[in-house]
Amino acid sequence: MEKVSDYLKIRREDLNNNPTARVAICLCLDVSGSMGTVERGDFKLTGKIIFRDGQNWSTATGGITRLDELQEGVKLFYDEISQDEIAQFAAEICIVTFANTAECKLDFANVYRQEVPELELGEMTSMGEGVNLALDLLEKRKQEFKDAGVDYFQPWLVLMTDGNPNGDSAELARAMERTNKMISEKKLTLFPIGVGEDANLDVLAKFTPKRNSIQLKELKFKEFFEWLSSSVEETSKSMPGEKVQYNLKAISEWGSKYSLNTRKVEPWPAELPLGGAKFFKCGKLLKLQ
């Protein structure tokens, strides 16, 4: 027979299983022709010259391209997230690529339900279209979280490009307006990252109110994605009222800060110029009856 003191015993099944608060991350990746640039490894020139993504290119066989490095970085990101006991349930990743058009290569889901897609080279750099699609998908996922009663953190958008946007200029302007507004309202964390020497850091900086962007050092995709996964892990463990501490020192290992105002690339500063403070939703005041 059950004693009164047994009433104090709490079994796991007696407790509610509220779903883990989600961190939605959209990787918005440039797969234009220039991402096929051979960066290292053995390669042979074919002798052919082609015009692609606004430039003439010598063609080659073999070698390791920027896109190959990016693909490895994305895979590493998934592996790191999958190994963390909380982040594997908290992180929801979506991959948007942009070249001639923008395409959702992988829609939001937990990492254990996803397979990293093979990134394919295109030609143009439709950056505005890519960012707008990414923002649309982030908004849609946020609404789905709300409808399902799932808590979520401020969403993240990682924008990576190695070139100049050459898609629709109106779409580009609309994308910049949207990210600036969302960042100002503390509704988005954006990482605008330029890859290689030809990345237009000015354009990337225009996606943020503080006019800053990040230059990836020496194609350190691996270091960037390691940092990104550890930041996701930190965020997923944070409590209400807790300000997430990004490992700022670690950013300097893979990135440099570019400011549109000074037009200079500088070492990463000891502050986070892209993130934001808190946003408080207005609550209702219940009157005494």
Partner: peptide, 27 residues
Amino acid sequence: PDNGEFSNETTFVTSPDAISHLRLYKG
């Protein structure tokens, strides 16, 4: 619970807008 839009946000007694989030009940 009175949370903000995002998971790690809530209001505190010391928050500038605490007065509009302070809920009182009687019965």
